Simulated scan of single mutants.
Amino acid sequence: MVVLRLRHARIVAATAVMLAMAACGGDGGTSSNTPGAPSASTLKLGVCVPNGPGLAGVGEGIEKGADLGAQKVSADGGPAVEIVPIDTGQLNTDLAMENAQKAVEQNGVQVVLCSGSNVVSAIVPYLERRGVASLLISSSATPYTNGAKLAQQMQALPATEASAMWDFLASGGPAARRVGVLYVDYEFGQSMATAAQDAARKAGQEVVAVESYPQGSTDVRSQLAKVLAANPDAIFLASTSGDDAGLAVRQGRELGYSGVFLSNSGAKTAALSSLPTARDGVYVSGNDVPAATPGPLSDLVARTTIHALLTYDSVVEAGTAARAVGGSITGRALIDEIRRAGGSAPTAGKYTFRPDGSTDMAFGVFRVSASGFEQVHTYTPLAG
Rank of each mutant, 00 (worst) to 15 (best):
S31C: 13
V365E: 00
P296Q: 15
R250H: 11
G331A: 08
A271H: 12
S241H: 07
P79T: 11
E63G: 09
G108E: 06
A308G: 04
A195M: 04
T240I: 14
A175Q: 10
S39K: 02
V112W: 08
V260S: 09
V179S: 03
L91Q: 15
G342R: 10
Q71G: 03
V220Q: 01
S285D: 15
N264S: 14
S273R: 04
Y351N: 01
S121F: 01
P125C: 07
R367S: 07
I338A: 09
G29L: 02
G343P: 00
A151I: 15
V120N: 11
E187R: 09
V365M: 08
S217W: 09
L275M: 10
A156F: 06
R201E: 14
K350R: 13
A318K: 02
L237I: 15
I123A: 09
S371C: 03
E206D: 13
H307S: 09
M154N: 06
R339V: 15
M21Q: 14
L182A: 00
V184W: 01
G357Y: 07
V17R: 09
E63P: 07
T320R: 06
Q215C: 00
D233A: 14
Y186D: 05
V181Q: 03
E98V: 15
A200E: 14
V208G: 04
R130I: 03
H377V: 07
A156N: 12
F236W: 11
G364L: 08
C114E: 11
G286E: 11
P232Y: 03
R250T: 13
S140M: 11
P381K: 00
G65K: 04
G108R: 12
Q375I: 04
V249I: 11
